[in-house]
């Protein structure tokens, strides 16, 4: 297939546009000097990714992405920013000078993922009929074939939760304890 053939299909325009939005947003997340803007660019990147899943008729995955990441994780980021500093202007200290190692790590990760997906799927084309994938199939594979990884992930999340509480919690002195229980 030549490039002209590829680009003349409307599906590929949409893919290109969404892809560019995701790349641009991802780039701005790390370069933006305003922390709230950075969080919002992350919303753009995740929204674009949800759009790509919608293009593959994976409705369930797309809306779960919106619900969990855009609707909860980034809202928590914003909440954290607002109860700590709530900066409204630019913050020069936001960008680190140490760019070489993260860039290396990121491109290494990118190469690894590209190699893994090309090796696994090659030129195979996903046969998208336009019919949404039934949620039942996702449920069956999640709680059937992938039940062990699923449980491992939930265990890791539980560990992170307990770790978070342990780090944030400060044991109260007896006097403070009394004061707390009086209220």
């Amino acid at each position: 297939m030549t490039f002209v053939d590829w680009i003349s299909a409307p599906v590929n325009w949409v893919f290109t546009i969404i892809g560019l939005v995701v790349i641009f947003s991802g780039f701005r997340v790390v370069t933006s000097r305003n922390i709230v803007h950075a969080a919002l660019y992350l919303v753009g990147a995740l929204g674009g990714t949800a759009g790509l899943f919608l293009m593959l008729s994976a409705e369930f995955v797309a809306w779960v992405l919106v619900l969990v990441y855009i609707g909860a994780v980034i809202v928590l980021f914003l909440f954290g920013i607002m109860i700590t500093r709530a900066p409204t202007g630019l913050d020069e200290s936001l960008n680190s000078d140490h760019t070489a190692l993260p860039a290396l790590l990121a491109s290494g990760f990118f190469l690894m993922m590209s190699w893994a997906s090309i090796d696994a799927f090659g030129t195979q084309v996903i046969d998208s009929t336009g019919e949404p994938v039934p949620t039942e199939i996702i449920g069956e594979s999640l709680f059937g074939r992938f039940v062990i990884p699923f449980e491992v992930v939930s265990f890791v999340l539980l560990a992170a939760l307990i770790g978070g509480i342990t780090l944030a919690r400060r044991d109260l002195s007896p006097a403070e304890e009394e004061e707390r229980s009086a209220v």
Binding site: W63, L67, G71, M82, P132, T135
Partner: peptide, 27 residues
């Protein structure tokens, strides 16, 4: 939609952005 309820949950969680950004951008 096949996943109507999920869409409702996703949209109701998006609704908070209007409030958060209004509050933050008002300065």
């Amino acid at each position: 939609l096949n996943i109507g309820l999920l869409f409702i949950l996703a949209m109701s969680s998006m609704a908070v952005y209007g409030v958060v950004l209004a509050g933050w951008s008002s300065g």
